[in-house]
């Protein structure tokens, strides 16, 4: 069995977002780039499964759409334990464009399970996994919060509004994963970092893809007015304000 994990390269979640070029572009100065948190959890789970599979899972591949600038992020994924990597050599634009690039790169290869994060911490399209499934004409399960392989059967938990379903899924399929799939992301050990340098990272040419959307301009939320602070002894007054002015209770 072969697993593929789609990873994207996003600003660290503590980044203070700023824009440049008349608010048409993200200001990249000082940004720490990391593996998208959901993708990192997906990769962590894939590695756990491989280690406990007794050889049944042959390999974990990661794939990224990005310029050479995203290689440190890909190397980190290899350092965490992925066996090899594919980079589609083009700057990612919008979701459909990225999904199309991924689909074309994946088509000539075979994977049993493809994992993608439910959302990305940058443009929050929450869409590449689902689009990829449609482009590859594959089954997809969204909001997967647990993934297990038992006696050759693939079992997943899927979050639905108000509950959780347990499903058995026939491969190949795409699992769009969310929180819960793994608890803590794996931190690469020194040995992993050394080994990552020599693991195969294949660079493939991009395909001709259209964009369906274009982000024209960005803005930051309006700053909030100053917070009105009450002391412990003035709680009644606050409740009055919440009741009469804010009308929230």
């Amino acid at each position: 069995m072969k697993i593929l994990v789609c990873i994207s390269d996003v600003p660290d979640t503590t980044t203070k977002i700023k824009f440049t070029n008349e608010n048409k572009e993200l200001d990249k100065t000082g940004i720490q780039w990391v593996i998208n948190p959901w993708d990192e959890l997906a990769l962590t789970r894939a590695l756990e499964l491989k280690e406990s599979s007794g050889g049944e899972i042959e390999s974990i591949t990661v794939i990224n759409v990005g310029s050479a600038a995203s290689e440190p992020t890909i190397r980190k994924a290899l350092a965490m334990g992925a066996d090899n990597a594919i980079r589609v050599d083009i700057e990612p634009k919008e979701s459909y464009f990225v999904a199309y690039q991924l689909a074309e790169a994946i088509k000539p290869r075979e994977f049993d399970i493809i994992l993608a994060g439910l959302d990305s911490a940058d443009y929050n399209g929450a869409s590449v996994g689902g689009m990829l499934a449609e482009l590859l004409d594959m089954a997809s399960v969204s909001a997967v919060s647990a993934l297990n392989i038992e006696e050759g059967k693939v079992l997943v938990n899927r979050e639905i509004e108000g509950g959780t379903q347990k499903l058995e899924v026939k491969t190949p399929f795409i699992a769009v994963v969310q929180k819960g799939i793994a608890i803590e992301p794996r931190i690469p050990a020194m040995r992993g970092i050394m080994m990552a340098r020599t693991k195969p990272l294949e660079v493939v040419e991009p395909s001709n893809a259209n964009c369906l959307t274009e982000n024209l301009v960005y803005e930051l939320p309006q700053p909030k007015g100053a917070c009105r602070i009450f002391k412990e002894e003035d709680i009644k007054e606050l409740v009055e304000v919440l009741h009469k002015e804010a009308k929230s209770i």
Binding site: S95, Y96, A99, L118, D119, N124, G125, A126, S127, V128, G129, G130, M131, L132, A133, E134, L135, S140, S142, A143, E159, I160, E161, V176, N210, L212, T213
Partner: peptide
């Protein structure tokens, strides 16, 4: 929400229809 996020992307790719989330 969970269902919108599960369905809208697939439909977008199927119809080549631009998707704006959120």
């Amino acid at each position: 929400n969970l269902s919108g996020r599960a369905l809208a992307p697939r439909l977008s790719a199927k119809l080549k229809a631009g998707l704006v989330s959120g």
